[in-house]
Simulated scan of single mutants.
Amino acid sequence: MTMALGATIHTFDVELADVDRGVYESPTLRMARHPSETDAFMVTRLLAYCLEYEEGIVFSEGVAATDEPAVLVRDLTGRTTAWIEVGAPDAERLHFGAKLADRAAVYTHRDPAKVAAAWAGKRIHHAEDIPLFSFDASFIDDVASALERRNTMTLSITERHMYLELNGSSFSTGIHEQRAG
């Protein structure tokens, strides 16, 4: 008999200063990392959460959630107000999320041109309003190499540039944006 591997819990004590949006918070985040989830995907999911941080934001079950994005925002009534995908969601899923929520966004650690090309000619609700954010692959890999089970993180965003300190290591990158449509 083989036993299925369970999720690994990672904890992040975050100091978030998003100067661009006027968000200054100190959340403690617990992320369950599914065995099939790569370090790069988890780092991108963490960054998406921080860059979208607002009241009502939550992680879904990640790669195990088939009917929810990696990150979502709900209002006090439970209605989904933001659908935040990570990686390379298919057009149908993005269309569904964009129709369900007031806004949608995609964060990727992959080549954004290839991610967007997969959506070409497909129906996506208000695709022109959906931002596709990407980070340099080397940045994501470097941050992933500094991950531990318990993490201390300081993240500052100013003029669409990110400054990150994770467990004593410092990283910096621009936040690249294009539109899904």
Rank of each mutant, 00 (worst) to 15 (best):
M1P: 13
M1Y: 15
G6V: 06
I9F: 13
I9D: 14
H10R: 10
H10N: 13
H10Q: 14
H10Y: 11
F12D: 15
D13C: 07
V14Y: 09
E15M: 09
E15F: 12
A17T: 07
D20A: 13
D20V: 00
R21D: 07
Y24H: 05
Y24R: 07
E25G: 10
S26N: 10
S26V: 02
P27M: 05
T28D: 03
M31E: 04
H34E: 10
P35K: 01
S36K: 09
S36V: 11
T38L: 07
T38F: 11
A40F: 02
T44A: 02
L46H: 07
Y53G: 05
F59M: 01
E61C: 00
E61I: 00
G62Q: 05
G62S: 06
V63H: 08
V63Q: 12
A64P: 11
A64R: 02
T66E: 15
D67G: 06
D67S: 09
E68V: 00
P69I: 12
P69W: 07
A70K: 02
A70I: 00
L72T: 08
V73T: 14
V73C: 14
R74Y: 00
D75R: 08
D75K: 02
D75H: 00
L76V: 12
G78A: 05
R79S: 01
T80S: 07
T81N: 02
T81G: 03
E85V: 04
E85I: 00
G87D: 04
A91G: 08
R93D: 13
L94P: 14
H95L: 10
H95I: 05
G97K: 04
G97R: 07
A98K: 03
A98Q: 01
K99W: 12
L100H: 14
A101S: 00
A101W: 00
A101D: 01
D102N: 06
D102R: 05
A105D: 03
A105I: 08
V106R: 09
V106E: 04
H109Q: 07
D111Q: 11
P112H: 13
V115K: 09
A116V: 11
A116Y: 09
A117D: 14
A118R: 06
A118I: 04
A118N: 08
A118Q: 02
A120I: 05
G121Y: 12
G121N: 13
H126W: 03
A127P: 04
D129F: 03
P131R: 00
L132C: 04
S134R: 02
F135H: 07
D136P: 01
A137S: 11
A137D: 07
A137Y: 10
I140V: 14
I140L: 03
D141H: 08
D142M: 01
V143K: 03
V143F: 06
S145M: 08
A146F: 07
E148F: 07
E148P: 05
R149M: 13
R150W: 12
R150A: 15
M153D: 15
L155I: 11
L155R: 10
I157M: 04
E159G: 10
E159Q: 08
R160S: 06
H161K: 12
M162H: 14
N167A: 12
S169R: 13
S169N: 15
S170C: 10
S172L: 06
H176K: 02
H176C: 00
E177Q: 03
Q178N: 00
Q178T: 05
R179S: 02
R179N: 01
A180R: 04
A180Y: 03
G181V: 03
